[in-house]
Design a protein around this nucleic acid. Structure first.
Lengths: 105, 105
DNA sequence: TAAACCAAGTTTGCAACACAAACTAAGAAC
DNA sequence: GTTCTTAGTTTGTGTTGCAAACTTGGTTTA
């Protein structure tokens, strides 16, 4: 059986992914693949300072790629999950699904 | 569609349940129905202070019933999910499962 | 050219949280 | 009467999430 790293059979949870704001961010990025900063800010409802700091956490973990460029002379920060980030998200999802899957109603 | 309380379609997450240590506690209690303090402590690997404070959080939320009694003159604290707690756990599970269910690989 | 504007931050301050270690209480066993 | 056990509470530390204020660097407008 996979993901059962604790001796009690309870899976280890990746706290970087697990935190609700970041789970929301990663879920969006997983589905839409790529987004700019402002769009993600509006979608998630996070303040920019808040979103910025979460993006830093995700970048520190190597879970997102952040690309800053200029479009029509306006700065735009493009965000997407890195390969590692997509894997981390999938692993998290599988861990949680497996945890709940065979549970009685 | 249920559980989509935010305008962006992202479900609201019950932080009481979501926190990893409590998710572990509630998962155990959901499956084994009832447990004493020490057993749960050993199963979860939490220190007693830690487990105690989490149980307080869960009790404050009305999610567990705590029954203190004596078995053979030894104090024993029995823990189980309340009706509200079982519902909160189920809701949480359904919310998460629904979030991940229709997501592409 | 100065003022106002915008994106995308950083910094600051605060409150909540998790966690471990130390301490406590109260009865049981020796 | 001291030591053991259960089941805590208290305390201290460090981390986190969050919003609001401030910053930077380039852009448009008056």
């Amino acid at each position: 059986m996979k993901n059962k790293t604790e001796s009690n059979g309870f899976p280890k949870i990746d706290k970087i992914v697990h935190e609700p704001a970041r789970l929301m961010i990663m879920t969006f990025l997983y589905v839409i693949d790529s987004s700019d900063f402002l769009f993600l800010m509006r979608q998630t409802g996070l303040t920019k300072g808040n979103l910025s700091s979460h993006m830093n956490k995700l970048e520190d973990a190597g879970y997102v790629d952040i690309e800053k460029k200029f479009i029509d002379k306006i700065p735009r920060t493009m965000l997407k999950l890195s390969k590692k980030g997509r894997k981390a998200f999938k692993d998290y999802r599988n861990t949680i699904i497996e945890l709940f899957k065979d549970m009685p109603e």
